[in-house]
Design a protein around this nucleic acid. Sequence first.
RNA 1: UGCCCGGUGGUGUAACGGUAGCACGAAUGACUCUGGAUCAUUUAGUCUAGGUUCAAAUCCUAGCCGGGCAACCA
Length: 565
Amino acid sequence: MPHNHPESAERPRDFIREIVAADVAAGLHGGRVHTRFPPEPNGYLHIGHAKSICLNFGIAREFGGKCNLRFDDTNPATEETEYVDAIQDDIRWLGFEWDELHFASDYFDQLYEWACVLINKGLAYVDSQTLEEIRSQRGTLTEPGRESPHRNRSPGENLDLFQRMKAGEFPDGAHVLRAKIDMASAHLIMRDPVMYRIRHAPHHRTGDKWCIYPMYDFTHGQSDAIEKVTHSICTLEFENHHPLYDWFIENLEIFPSQQYEFARLNLTYTVMSKRKLLELVRENRVTGWDDPRMPTLCGLRRRGYTPEAIRNLCAQVGVTKFNSLTDMVVLENALRNDLNKRAERRMAVLRPLKVVITNYPDGETEQLEAINNPEDESAGKRSVPFSKVLYIERDDFMEDPPKKFFRLGPGREVRLRYAYFITCQEAIKDDSGEIVELHCTYDPATRGGDAPDGRKVKGTLHWVSAEHALDAEVRLYDHLLKVESLGDVGEDEDWKDALNPNSLETLTGCKLEPSLADVQPGTSIQFERLGYFTPDSVDHTADKPVFNRSVTLKDAWAKIQKKQG
RNA sequence: UGCCCGGUGGUGUAACGGUAGCACGAAUGACUCUGGAUCAUUUAGUCUAGGUUCAAAUCCUAGCCGGGCAACCA
């Protein structure tokens, strides 16, 4: 069976795209492809949603089709306009634009009519039992359920009751509209599922118009049908709903949208449940939905992640029905790969150690030329001031260095990047024995960083001139969780005990090279040898710079230490 | 115990009855004014047992393991 899609040969393929391609080839719906992304506006989008967004919008783009954004807003208790706005911002930021914007709540009138259709067909009835009664009759995994005493009410009676439910004659919970399917079905979901419940609650869009609200199952497929969605792609937990999805469409005789399920994205060391993320926000475990430790799109954005990196991750993980757990390093690598090509380099010292160049003239300053991005010549060059007193990273000096430590130690010579070779002559300590300052000498002949005699050094350090340095706060982020997966947490334990207590480390008194004064939020910069950083979009000001670490650079020395340590 | 869906190196995936491939990780080496990047090499896999077939990761059967389902949530 040959594949005749040469135009799509290089695209990432997956089982859903193959189905779509086959449907197009077969001329289904005239070859039209229409998808939708259907978030519930009860929280912010996270990177798991990004996978769904890339899939749905990506397929539409690749097959010349359309993709709608539809808010699945059938539960007035949890949904808010704040989320509606944020979700749209995040989708656009990720790089996608919808063809049509819809709200399931726009279909409430149509849905009500369709409920009446089912009542008239004898396929739906009003049940007046309590929630507990209905629950107790549902049966178990192995035993069939029992039929409600109201199951055989006449269509006329049902219609009357349903209209009065809508008219607001009854309090919450007094009645419910149920589909009349099969209380003995092996599919629990088919045991007369609830279609409508009474909720005297204002809705973020329809206000007080309704006091009955349709359930997800009685909304989603029909919304797809109304919009003539050809491929309704959702995550695995809706697989069980598939027969019901089809049942409503068939019995209503409406457009036959087809549902397909794929596995949601799971990442190590983080949580992807909206409920849990909301818990972190409400309990102030994080500063908000956009806390840079959060896996939300706004959190990742503030952290310094780029849309490209997130889209690349989604392409790399693929689309399957296998319930997988993707290593966080894949995401981190996607960011490094993107930023390595684009981010300009600067020097910044996070934990400063003072260095005095004893043989350098007092009061002199010279400008040294530095390359902005070795991966991109068009990024040009800049000058960096050098003077007698500098800062280097505390980690770059060891009093008693092991063999594999290539940096500074007593009597050792290293290169200061773009500047000079220096040799450590003396480490000055305070009364408590802590090293407070290094005295070094420099070799004037090595200006720029090369020795005319061909002498080599093992290490190159970043540095900042003390006199010219900018003071800054730098926030270092680590995993939200200290365990790979919440699946490792026992059911009797509080999942929040798995939160990493060291997920944020705030450093003050960091020293930046002066050119960093101009960096605007939204820009990613590599601090050489340290990682990629970005000004914090909330707290950064020119007077008081605040940088977030997006991701570290790969660190071979740290790896050696870890292996030996 | 019922129903639905899955199981390919450490991780994520490809192979559509015909050479088990790719990426990430890991390891080694080269190069390097970032212990970054880059380049090269290596590592390691079809859940099990039967069956069909010239040929099975792929089809069939059974088992094992994992996920989901008993909200008036989505």
